[in-house]
């Protein structure tokens, strides 16, 4: 009888430990800090491929995450809210934000470039300097278009 209870205790503890390991070691629960840090916004012309929870980096180091993406109907811009971890509170106010792709086909993320201002970004601030996402289809389209116009020139010459 007692051994049964001990075994059940071991089993339940093991199961909970496994869940704990999944939460802490495997998932990003530890680095979420939903309520931690401060929130800033940035407006982009195009953010295609960016998702809520995409990373926000500076100098390649992840310092926060995208928490919300909105569309402004007046300016036709995307408004991206980012939560920056509280330990990174010395970012210059005139930093710029760009949407990058990790690798050729990897996921989109926001990269911040520091500016030179003395004041720092604080909760609710908006980044004004932004650069939109590079859309691969558009690049390819432009490439093909220029190729095509070259061809037509060549064809027209003789």
């Amino acid at each position: 009888m007692r051994t049964i209870e001990i075994w059940v205790g071991v089993f339940v503890a093991g199961g909970l430990a496994a869940l704990f390991m999944l939460a802490m070691q495997v998932s990003n629960l530890t680095s979420v800090g939903e309520t931690d840090g401060y929130e800033i916004k940035a407006r982009f012309d195009n953010i295609s491929g960016l998702n809520v929870r995409s990373p926000v980096t500076m100098a390649g180091v992840r310092i926060g995450r995208v928490v919300d993406i909105d569309f402004d109907e007046k300016t036709f811009e995307a408004v991206v809210s980012m939560r920056i971890e509280s330990q990174y509170d010395q970012l210059p106010e005139d930093s710029s934000a760009s949407v990058f792709t990790s690798g050729l086909l990897g996921e989109k993320y926001i990269g911040l470039e520091p500016g030179g201002a003395l004041d720092n970004l604080a909760d609710g601030d908006v980044i004004h300097l932004t650069q939109s996402s590079l859309v691969l289809e558009r690049l390819i389209g432009q490439f093909l278009f220029s190729q095509g116009s070259d061809d037509s020139k060549e064809g027209a010459e003789p």
Binding site: L19, L22, A23, Q25, V26, S27, N28, T30, S31, R53
Partner: peptide
């Protein structure tokens, strides 16, 4: 191995849904 895992496995969307 671990950091890529942590970056892309979401606690609420993946682990809790699995549970």
């Amino acid at each position: 191995y671990w950091s890529q895992m942590q970056n892309s496995v979401n606690f609420w969307d993946d682990i809790i849904n699995g549970v």
